[in-house]
Measured scan of single mutants.
Amino acid sequence: KVILLEDVKGLGKKGDVVEVKDGYARNFLIPQGLAVEATKGNLKEL
């Protein structure tokens, strides 16, 4: 699961917690600054 930092077409809006494949999160969303891993600490910051 990841928390979206920006609106991502076809996935969700900023602040949404979405389930995506590990590779998509690690190789695209997180490096592009579009999402962060949905850890307990990150979820509390919402």
Rank of each mutant, 00 (worst) to 15 (best):
K1I: 12
K1Y: 09
K1A: 10
K1G: 04
K1E: 11
K1N: 10
K1Q: 13
V2A: 02
V2P: 00
V2R: 00
V2N: 01
V2S: 01
V2I: 10
I3H: 04
I3C: 05
I3D: 01
I3K: 06
L4Q: 00
L4H: 00
L4K: 00
L5T: 08
L5K: 08
L5W: 03
E6C: 11
D7W: 08
D7F: 12
D7G: 05
D7E: 10
D7P: 09
V8P: 00
V8H: 04
V8E: 01
K9W: 13
K9N: 13
G10P: 05
G10K: 05
G10M: 09
G10S: 07
G10D: 09
G10V: 02
L11K: 02
L11E: 01
G12Y: 00
K13T: 10
K13P: 02
K13S: 11
K14S: 07
K14Q: 08
G15R: 04
G15F: 12
G15K: 03
G15Q: 03
G15Y: 11
D16F: 08
D16Y: 09
D16I: 05
V17G: 02
V18C: 08
V18F: 04
V18W: 03
E19S: 09
E19D: 13
E19L: 14
V20F: 03
V20Y: 02
V20L: 04
K21P: 13
K21V: 15
K21D: 15
K21T: 14
D22L: 07
D22P: 12
D22I: 08
D22F: 09
G23P: 10
G23H: 12
G23I: 12
G23L: 10
G23W: 12
G23R: 12
Y24I: 09
Y24C: 03
Y24T: 07
Y24F: 13
Y24K: 02
A25G: 09
A25L: 10
A25R: 03
A25P: 02
R26M: 13
R26Q: 13
R26V: 11
N27C: 09
N27I: 09
N27S: 08
N27G: 14
N27Y: 13
F28M: 05
F28V: 12
F28G: 03
F28K: 05
L29P: 00
L29K: 00
L29A: 01
L29Y: 02
L29S: 01
L29E: 01
L29D: 01
I30Y: 15
I30F: 13
I30G: 02
P31F: 13
P31K: 15
P31S: 15
P31N: 14
P31E: 15
Q32F: 10
Q32E: 11
Q32V: 08
Q32P: 02
Q32C: 14
G33F: 08
G33V: 03
G33Q: 11
G33R: 09
L34Q: 06
L34S: 03
L34C: 03
L34D: 02
L34K: 10
A35V: 05
A35T: 01
V36N: 04
E37I: 11
E37L: 08
E37W: 14
E37T: 05
A38G: 09
A38S: 09
A38L: 05
A38K: 05
A38N: 08
T39P: 09
T39R: 04
T39C: 12
T39S: 09
T39V: 03
K40M: 15
G41F: 08
G41L: 11
G41D: 15
G41V: 11
G41W: 03
N42T: 05
N42D: 11
N42Y: 05
L43R: 02
L43F: 04
K44I: 14
K44C: 10
K44A: 15
K44D: 15
E45Q: 06
E45I: 04
E45D: 12
E45Y: 05
E45M: 03
E45P: 07
E45T: 03
L46E: 13
L46Q: 10
L46D: 13
L46F: 13
L46W: 08
L46K: 02
